[in-house]
């Protein structure tokens, strides 16, 4: 089997339409719409859930590739990644069913592949930094807020399911922190590059000021500081992330 595979080999059923994230955002802005779904209406919640579903699918595919691509990595690393594949495959099922619950369908919104592209990094340390810490950190922010919104709109199915997924994601972030340290032991250059990769991803997913430190009701994506602490991000890292979100930029 080719290791790693080219990112354009990601296989999809016909029902999905793929489009670059930037193009999706631009075409929405042209229509006078926010580039990223806020959580103000049931429709926008459904669109957000669809985006999460796509992310879960790519997270499953990415973790699967990591199991496949690094046969020489420590066995415990493979075990953690295999566990993550299982978790993500359950998350895919959960979000497929939540989408159904919200009256949507798979493919209702275009799929963007930023997460998958990050999961194609050639170095295992960069993958865990970028995906487990960068993107799953973002998942912690998004899911924490979604649990809050579900509670507010009185949707216990959404609330409970997402809360359990969030618990898994916290575990995945912890795995990311653990393996970023272990895989780069004695190799500060490798560590520096992996962290830089993660910081680029963090910056990108601030989405031009859409992610912010603020109340769940007031901002589109609120930084889940408590959850991030629980997941093993240091105070310094959380502070730095919040600082980067304040550097507002045009998408």
């Amino acid at each position: 089997m080719d290791r790693p595979i080219a990112y354009d080999k990601l296989a999809r059923e016909d029902r999905w339409v793929r489009m670059r994230a930037r193009e999706v955002a631009e075409l929405k802005v042209e229509q006078g719409l926010p580039p990223f779904p806020d959580l103000s209406t049931r429709d926008s919640i459904r669109e957000r859930v669809h985006g999460i579903l796509v992310g879960e699918m790519q997270a499953m595919e990415g973790a699967g590739r990591t199991v496949c691509d690094f046969p020489d990595a420590p066995w415990e690393f493979t075990m953690d990644m295999a566990r993550q594949v299982w978790d993500e495959s359950r998350h895919v099922e959960i979000y497929l069913r939540l989408l159904e619950h919200l009256g949507g369908y798979p493919g209702e919104f275009p799929e963007t592949t930023i997460l998958w592209r990050c999961a194609c990094a050639e170095d295992a340390a960069a993958r865990v930094a970028g995906v487990n810490r960068g993107l799953e950190g973002l998942a912690c922010d998004v899911f924490n807020q979604l649990v809050h919104i579900a509670r507010r709109i009185g949707d216990p199915i959404l609330e409970r399911a997402v809360e359990f997924v969030l618990a898994d994601e916290i575990t995945h972030v912890r795995m990311g922190s653990k393996w970023l340290t272990k895989l780069t032991e004695g190799d500060p250059e490798r560590r520096r590059k992996a962290i830089e990769f993660q910081e680029n991803i963090d910056e990108r997913f601030n989405l031009g000021g859409i992610r912010q430190d603020g109340d769940h009701e007031a901002v589109s994506i609120s930084v889940a500081t408590d959850v991030r602490r629980m997941a093993g991000f240091t105070e310094e890292e959380i502070e730095r992330l919040i600082k980067t979100t304040q550097r507002s930029q045009a998408y």
Binding site: M1, R3, I5, K9, L10, A11, R12, E13, M60, E61, G62, A63, G64, R65, T66, V67, C68, D69, M81, A82, V85, S89, V92, L96, P106, W116
Partner: peptide, 10 residues
Amino acid sequence: GGWIALTPDV
């Protein structure tokens, strides 16, 4: 693990 990404069928 590697095939998941190469397989279209959910």
